[in-house]
């Protein structure tokens, strides 16, 4: 697994950098002796670094699972209404039962994400298979409509500020110990995808082939729906939506290594983690000691990468 090793070779130094970079200076000299520094490490820097890695890996995997489900490379949970549905669910809980514990919010957001994604899957079922770009367009329209509902309700209830964090600018500056652990569940959901890797690869070959190999395509779809929705909802609940990771990383990995997910999922996970961590570090350095949200950095880098992908690979969706 050379690509995984290469990416881990990048990820390790980036993680070290992430531990060292921040408003409070950390010196090698006082390492281990300064209790204040140990506190910063264990409460802020380490949780943040872990949160970034878990988010990047989980979102990249959710992206590739989604792409296998709809057999289209130009979708990710952020462009198919999944994120907006999760936000809608989260908004509903916040309005109806603002004091409910975080796990209730997480469950409601996940269920809403599942419903929204199921709606998207239903909408695209009738689209002609040849029209590769219609699928992402329908996804964008659906997310636009759902996003408008979210904004309208948020405006009426004075919750716009929360919404802009959930949907627009996911970022990690608020991550401290005790406020990111849900992301381990997101990583768990992504790990579930690894156990079903062959099933998703087979699903990518189409319903007929899936059936003829003795798998129920609907069952595999439902599994994918759970993975995608849980990952998206948990990321939104904890740090907010991070765009483009689920789109760019799986596309680059597929170009290089193909769609045999059993082999490529570790690379995809490592790639997502590396990309988001690099962008988070850039975000922390651009206006040091202030921060630019990682979503903004990724938006810039990601849209550039995506345009490059579109022009590089026009023929096969």
């Amino acid at each position: 697994m050379r690509p995984t090793l290469t990416l881990l070779g990048l990820l390790v130094p980036l993680s070290v950098a992430s531990l060292l970079i921040g408003a409070a200076g950390i010196g090698f000299a006082s390492f281990g002796s300064d209790p204040h520094m140990a506190l910063i490490m264990s409460v802020s820097r380490l949780p943040r670094t872990l949160a970034v890695i878990l988010t990047g890996a989980a979102l990249a995997i959710a992206g590739v699972v989604m792409q296998q489900m709809v057999r289209n490379r130009f979708v990710e949970p952020g462009t198919t209404g999944t994120a907006e549905s999760a936000a809608l669910g989260l908004l509903a809980v916040t309005i109806v039962a603002p004091a409910s514990p975080i796990w209730v919010k997480m469950v409601v957001a996940s269920l809403a994400a599942m419903a929204g994604t199921a709606l998207f899957l239903r909408l695209i079922r009738r689209l002609p298979a040849r029209e590769v770009l219609l699928v992402p367009v329908v996804g964008l329209i659906l997310s636009g409509v759902l996003g408008a509902i979210v904004t309208f309700v948020g405006w009426q209830t004075d919750l716009l500020q929360l919404i802009s964090i959930w949907l627009m600018t996911g970022e990690f500056s608020g991550v401290i110990a005790g406020r990111y652990e849900l992301l381990w569940f997101a990583a768990g959901a992504a790990a579930l995808a690894w156990f079903a890797a062959d099933r998703f690869s087979i699903l990518g070959l189409g319903r007929e082939t899936t059936t003829s190999l003795g798998l129920n395509p609907d069952a595999v779809m439902r599994l994918g729906l759970v993975v995608v929705s849980v990952v998206t909802a948990l990321v939104i609940v904890t740090v907010g939506m991070i765009p483009f990771v689920g789109l760019v990383v799986p596309n680059i990995v597929a170009r290089r290594l193909g769609d045999n997910l059993r082999a490529t999922l570790p690379v995809t996970a490592a790639g997502g983690a590396t990309l988001v961590l690099a962008c988070d570090i850039v975000g922390r350095l651009v206006r040091f000691p202030y921060e630019v949200p990682v979503g903004t950095i990724l938006g810039v880098i990601g849209s550039g990468l995506f345009l490059w992908l579109l022009y590089r690979e026009p023929a096969h969706g």
Binding site: A129, S201, L205, G206, S212, R255, N260
Partner: peptide, 26 residues
Amino acid sequence: MAILSQTNSLGSRLRVRELVGFGRWP
């Protein structure tokens, strides 16, 4: 029974060996 349908359109980027290997999945 193995069935090869007409609509094996291409969306997946698989190597020939990987595709044939999936034939053994059942």
